[in-house]
Write a protein that binds this DNA or RNA. Structure first.
Length: 353
DNA sequence: CCAGACGTTGTT
DNA sequence: GTCTGG
DNA sequence: CCAGACGTTGTT
DNA sequence: GTCTGG
């Protein structure tokens, strides 16, 4: 019976941050979100507790932040821009398991340019190679040559052409649909290098906290927040053609090196049913828009933006899965199986929808 | 002019 | 590469 | 997205 | 805490 199990509730990230180890004041200021302002030369070993003002609508409330360090307390004006840690969720993991031939057929690919094998991947993470569909004129073709629709594998995490090394790619895994046309890192690719990234569905992690157990009485035992992975996929089982951009990059110091092909996933608002638990999702391109989306000759940002339509409510399934997906070392169909009773220490007792 | 960023997620 | 901030 | 590391000195 | 690697 799961009816007596504590009900999980969605909580926001803590506004109190505890840091331990050897830190300077800069670390603490960073921990509480200040990226600018007065500095202090104090250093030391031990643990600190820092608190910061609550942020609403992207701006800090008025007031002061207190940073206590043993007997010393520093106050700082709370007027600086706040920077959050990587506590949120986005499209950072997905599954793509269609076989090569299925992809070639489904997307009416003209040229199979994907070297090597295309293996089902139930745990795609940033920096991995992913199958992609794109349209591009042949390498040595004269101007005006027709673009050819091709299947390739790309590295997830877009590396802009100006990057000194490819490490920036792991931070360029998503592009917001609302701003992608104007961001320096993306707009060139948005105009000329769009692609489709086939997916079965994507993962997202809820931050869960069990409600207080009355049996514990006055003891306010603070439980560690737990993250529960969910898999989200189209109800009809159709392939998700995620809107993507690709880029070609070559190290500056090695003209003979091969071009590195990289990509990013465009995100958009999630419809209400999904938005109750998570307000962003990958942008999906409808089949009747695939041709236009892939057309490298369509470069007007307004026209391209017109192809991007947020998903309709009620079209996706979302259900909890095993925490095995947390580790990129795990891979297999079991990662997208609904979590069974007993999985994850009973964090969740069933589907939300 | 040069230096430095170039991105996303979240909202008690 | 190109834009913003100082 | 999560997991896991997170540094320096010197140089037989 | 922040950053990198997968």
């Amino acid at each position: 019976m799961t009816s007596s199990a504590p009900v999980p509730t969605l909580i926001a990230p803590s506004i109190r941050t505890r840091v331990s180890g050897s830190f300077g004041i800069q670390s603490i200021r960073s921990a509480i979100g200040f990226t600018d302002g007065p500095t202090c030369s104090a250093r030391g070993r031990g643990s600190r507790t820092a608190s910061r003002p609550v942020m609403m609508n992207g701006a800090a409330t008025r007031g002061r932040a207190r940073v206590s360090m043993g007997r010393m307390t520093r106050y700082m004006p709370a007027t600086m821009r706040l920077k959050r840690g990587r506590m949120g969720t986005m499209c950072g993991r997905y599954a793509t398991t269609r076989a090569r031939q299925e992809l070639l057929d489904e997307f009416q690919v003209q040229v199979d340019a994907a070297g090597g094998e295309i293996q089902p991947d139930y745990n795609v993470a940033p920096t991995k190679q992913v199958p992609a569909v794109l349209a591009r004129a042949p390498k040595d073709a004269p101007d005006g040559e027709e673009a050819v629709r091709q299947l390739r594998t790309l590295r997830w995490g877009l590396v802009p052409s100006w990057a000194k090394d490819l490490s920036i790619g792991s931070r360029m895994i998503n592009a917001r649909a609302e701003t992608v046309h104007e961001k320096p890192s993306y707009r060139r690719a948005f105009a000329k290098r769009r692609c489709l990234l086939p997916a079965d569905g994507y993962f997202e992690w809820y931050v869960l906290q069990q409600s207080d157990d009355p049996a514990e009485g006055e003891k306010k035992a603070k439980r560690k927040p737990q993250k529960q992975p969910f898999f989200i996929r189209p109800k009809d089982g159709a392939v998700m053609a995620m809107a993507g951009l690709y880029e070609l990059w070559k190290p500056r110091d090695d003209e003979d090196a091969d071009w590195l092909w990289t990509c990013t996933v465009i995100t958009t608002d999630a419809p209400d049913d999904l938005g109750r638990i998570h307000d962003r999702m990958p942008m999906v391109v409808r089949p009747d828009q695939w041709d236009a989306w892939l057309d490298p000759g369509l470069t007007d940002p307004d026209e391209v933006r017109g192809l991007l339509v947020p998903a309709m409510a009620g079209t996706m399934d979302a259900y909890p899965v095993s925490k095995a997906v947390n580790s990129v070392k795990n891979n297999g169909p079991e990662l997208i199986e609904p979590a069974s009773d007993g999985d994850n220490s009973g964090n969740h007792s069933g589907a939300l929808f």
